[in-house]
Amino acid sequence: MTDEDSTREAAYAVLTDETRVRILFALADRYDEAWSSEWPTFSELRTQVGVNDTSRFSYHLTELQDEFVRKVDGRYLPRVAALEIVAAIRAGTYGEARAGDEESDIEQREIDCECLHCDQALVATYRNHQLYVGCPEHGAAVAYPTPPRAARSRTIDEVIDCSLRKHACDVRLLREGVCPHCWGTANLSFPRDSVPDTYLLDDVPYATAACDICWLSYPIPIAHTILGHPAVETLYANCGLGPRDAQLGPHDLARVSDVSLSERDSPAARIVVELRDNQVVFDLDETCSVLDHRR
């Protein structure tokens, strides 16, 4: 077992007790208030968590230091790790299934968007923390991990919109070399020789999004590597279209763009986006970073 494995297991072990998790929730709930007042003392935090036994509470609070909680001048502050754990639990991405989670599942239904190959209406579903949009015969147009919280009290169209907006932000970070999930070193690269048979867009050139640290690795159309770029968002907005249109439907970037690869060092690729008599040209390097763009 490596030192990293030991550290990870120790952190998980600390979080197996309900009282410790309640401490993290209590500190997270004080986050906004603490900036204008102060973080809680031992007694204030114990009262907020609802533990009468001082010795028992002290033991659990000590177990959370210094990985998740800091003590400064007699007051207790959450570390970023604590806040992210609380956010993950509330988003529904961490922990066992809870009563009501099944309400987040959205049964398969048709949406107002056609398959690019057979003109059938695409179907969308949300289940098992995954948004899927695709054609029953030709595969997936969108397959994106989406936490249960995103699907609660939202229609399937709203889930699609927020997921695609999140993906555009992810791509923007990847262009800058940052993994949107673990903050590790990540990249976009091309060319990619093959994609899964279940992908709807099977006749366009693909790149690869990958992180050096975590699980992130998937094929992405090269035209989609400019998602989230201000010039792309302005182009679509000027045409009365939004982020969803850039990834799904007849105005999908992969369908309204001409992608050419070069054997030269720079630019390594050129993307010409044609949308309603408007054109924007992007020059990319081998990591899909935008070297230049012009109308």
Rank of each mutant, 00 (worst) to 15 (best):
E158T: 02
V86G: 02
V123G: 02
R152G: 00
R109N: 02
A91T: 06
V72Y: 12
R75E: 05
R165Y: 08
C162M: 13
S58H: 14
E137D: 15
L83T: 01
L131Y: 09
D170G: 13
P148D: 04
R127V: 12
Y76T: 01
V159Y: 08
R165L: 08
R70G: 05
H129T: 13
L83G: 00
G139I: 01
D105L: 09
A143R: 15
L116C: 01
D66K: 06
L173Y: 00
P136E: 11
H117G: 01
D73M: 07
S104Y: 03
A88G: 06
Q65W: 04
A168E: 02
I111T: 13
D73F: 04
V133F: 02
R127F: 09
P148Q: 09
C118K: 12
L61T: 04
C115D: 07
R90K: 13
L122H: 01
A91L: 13
Q108D: 10
A97T: 08
L122Q: 08
P78F: 10
A168V: 07
L173P: 00
C135L: 04
K71D: 13
I89R: 14
C162G: 01
G100R: 11
R152A: 07
K166H: 07
H167A: 06
V86P: 04
I156P: 03
P145T: 09
T155G: 10
N128C: 03
I106L: 14
E67Y: 01
D170I: 09
L116T: 08
S104T: 15
E110G: 11
L77C: 05
A151N: 07
S58W: 09
H129Q: 14
L64A: 07
V69G: 06
E114V: 04
I89K: 04
R75Y: 09
G95Y: 07
R98D: 02
V159N: 05
A141L: 06
L77F: 15
V123F: 10
S104Q: 04
I85Q: 06
Y144R: 09
V80N: 07
Y132P: 00
L83H: 12
R127N: 10
C169F: 07
Y126L: 01
A168N: 04
A121I: 03
D112L: 06
P136N: 11
V142H: 04
P136A: 02
E67R: 12
R154K: 11
S153R: 08
Y76A: 00
L131S: 10
A99C: 02
E102D: 14
R75A: 04
D157C: 01
R98P: 00
R165S: 12
A87Y: 11
Y132F: 07
R165G: 05
R90T: 12
Y94D: 02
D101I: 03
Y132L: 13
I85L: 15
E110M: 12
L77T: 10
V142I: 15
E96L: 11
A99S: 11
A121H: 14
H167R: 10
F68R: 05
A124M: 01
L164M: 08
S153D: 12
A97Q: 04
R98F: 03
I156K: 07
E63Q: 15
F68Q: 05
D101E: 10
V142P: 09
V123T: 09
A82C: 10
E103C: 03
